[in-house]
């Protein structure tokens, strides 16, 4: 429900700080989104620091997955992952159904 003008705060300020994480842009289908294999990950956290959308999930100091609500599929995490190509824990899954 959109608010009426009478219900806005003075000056149109927004006191619901950080609410985009609850209601913001999500599930954007812009690009192909990466997959994550925890067995191959060395937990260097470079994917975390270079993710523009805070979509790398970290639990107990381990990378455990990708938050697809916010991942826009930019692919920086794959490119910046220092593990050699064949062993990368982050990769794009080939979409066989498209073939």
């Amino acid at each position: 429900m959109l608010k009426k003008w009478q219900d806005l705060e003075i000056g149109g300020i927004n006191s619901d700080s950080g609410n985009s994480i609850k209601k913001g842009l999500n599930n954007l289908e812009i690009c192909k989104k990466p997959e994550f294999n925890p067995e191959l990950c060395r937990n260097c956290f470079l994917c975390w620091v270079f993710c523009p959308d805070n979509a790398i999930i970290i639990e107990n100091s381990m990378v455990t997955g990708i938050n697809y609500d916010f991942c826009k599929g930019c692919g920086i995490c794959i490119t910046e992952c220092p593990v050699t190509e064949a062993q990368k824990p982050l990769y794009i899954k080939e979409d066989k159904s498209a073939l």
């Binding site: 959109l2 608010k3 009426k4 003008w5 806005l8 000056g11 149109g12 300020i13 927004n14 006191s15 700080s17």
Partner: peptide, 14 residues
């Protein structure tokens, strides 16, 4: 607080 938001046509008038 966020002061001076971007408002699109859904909120600018209000």
């Amino acid at each position: 607080k966020t002061v001076g938001s971007l408002c699109a046509s859904d909120y600018f008038f209000e």
